[in-house]
Deep mutational scan, measured.
Amino acid sequence: MTDQQAEARSYLSEEMIAEFKAAFDMFDADGGGDISVKELGTVMRMLGQTPTKEELDAIIEEVDEDGSGTIDFEEFLVMMVRQ
């Protein structure tokens, strides 16, 4: 866990972390443990947004600390705390 990830967790109660985990699992449609650009786009479109591929890439790049091209749960928490 990076310093950013530990800091993000410090702002959240266990209840909030559990709620974010449920949301993360909804995004992680294939159950792979991370959110891909495609999965992020699908959920955002379900919520009425129309992000471009470039916008989706930028969202993932902003929090993808390990350079995997996807968002894992710890990175997702950082993203949610920043919102």
Rank of each mutant, 00 (worst) to 15 (best):
M1L: 07
T2P: 01
T2Q: 15
Q4A: 05
Q5V: 13
Q5F: 13
A8L: 13
A8V: 11
R9M: 06
L12C: 03
L12M: 08
L12I: 06
S13E: 02
E14Y: 06
E14C: 03
E14V: 07
E15N: 15
E15V: 09
M16V: 08
I17A: 06
E19F: 00
E19Q: 11
E19I: 02
F20K: 00
F20R: 00
F20T: 04
F20C: 03
K21P: 00
A22W: 05
A22I: 03
A22D: 09
F24Q: 00
F24Y: 03
D25I: 04
F27Q: 09
D28A: 09
D28F: 02
D28M: 09
A29H: 07
D30P: 03
D30S: 06
D30Y: 02
G31E: 03
G31C: 11
G32N: 11
G32M: 02
G32C: 11
G32T: 14
G32A: 14
G33Y: 02
D34Q: 08
I35R: 01
I35D: 05
V37C: 07
E39C: 11
L40Q: 00
V43K: 01
V43F: 02
M46F: 07
L47V: 11
G48T: 03
G48E: 05
Q49V: 08
T50R: 15
P51C: 12
T52L: 05
T52P: 09
K53H: 03
K53E: 15
K53A: 12
E54T: 10
E54P: 15
E54H: 05
E55G: 11
E55W: 05
E55H: 07
E55C: 03
D57G: 06
D57C: 10
D57K: 02
A58M: 10
A58W: 05
A58D: 03
I59Q: 05
I59W: 09
I59M: 14
I60N: 04
I60C: 08
E62G: 06
V63I: 15
E65L: 09
E65Y: 01
D66S: 08
D66V: 06
G67Y: 01
T70R: 13
T70K: 14
T70N: 08
T70I: 09
I71D: 00
I71H: 00
I71F: 09
I71K: 00
I71C: 12
D72A: 10
D72S: 14
E74A: 04
E75P: 02
F76L: 04
L77C: 04
L77A: 07
L77P: 00
M79K: 04
M79C: 14
M80F: 07
M80T: 04
M80G: 01
R82P: 05
Q83A: 15
